[in-house]
């Protein structure tokens, strides 16, 4: 069954979005390390929408959670109708650079890509649709 939360795309709503996700995860007995990884991914993606999707204006973010059984996995989709933007197209940060050379950008999406089992993006009917999937056992 799919659960949905619609909130103003404002970073101050991050605790509400994470609480909504955690509630679904706790219900299915998601192990704590996976929950933390998912929480981080949710923060990175929601804050991205809050920061960039609507420029200086405002708009909504839709968060949908579906738990699949056998094998147990969770799928989370973020939808906004702001400017078309594929965050996955961004180059990964070079993690071998020295302290002086390391850049601050791109770390969030990079963590999402590395910690989730599947990440996909599409632009459809005026919406940015980003979906992550994590296997829970």
């Amino acid at each position: 069954m799919m659960q949905e939360l619609i909130v103003e795309a404002d970073r101050m709503n991050l605790p509400q979005v994470q609480a909504f996700i955690d509630e679904q995860l706790e219900e299915v007995g998601c192990p704590m390390p996976a929950q933390i990884s998912i929480d981080i991914a949710v923060e990175e993606l929601f804050v991205n929408i809050a920061s960039y999707a609507y420029g200086n204006g405002s708009g909504k973010a839709v968060v949908q959670v579906t738990v699949h059984e056998d094998p147990l996995s969770v799928e989370i989709t973020f939808i906004d109708n702001g400017a078309p933007y594929d965050p996955l197209a961004k180059a990964d940060p070079d993690t071998t650079l020295s302290l002086k050379e390391r850049k601050k950008g791109g770390l969030g999406i990079f963590m999402v890509k590395k910690s989730m089992d599947n990440v996909s993006y599409e632009y459809k009917d005026g919406n940015n649709i980003l979906t992550i999937k994590k296997n829970l056992n």
């Binding site: 929480d39 981080i40 923060e43 990175e44 002086k100 390391r102 601050k104």
Partner: peptide, 20 residues
């Protein structure tokens, strides 16, 4: 500290670069 996201990492990176 139970949780760190990229926002936290950026602050730590900035601190390390400032102390370097």
């Amino acid at each position: 500290l139970d949780y760190i996201s990229s926002a936290g990492l950026r602050v730590l990176l900035g601190a390390a670069q400032a102390m370097d």
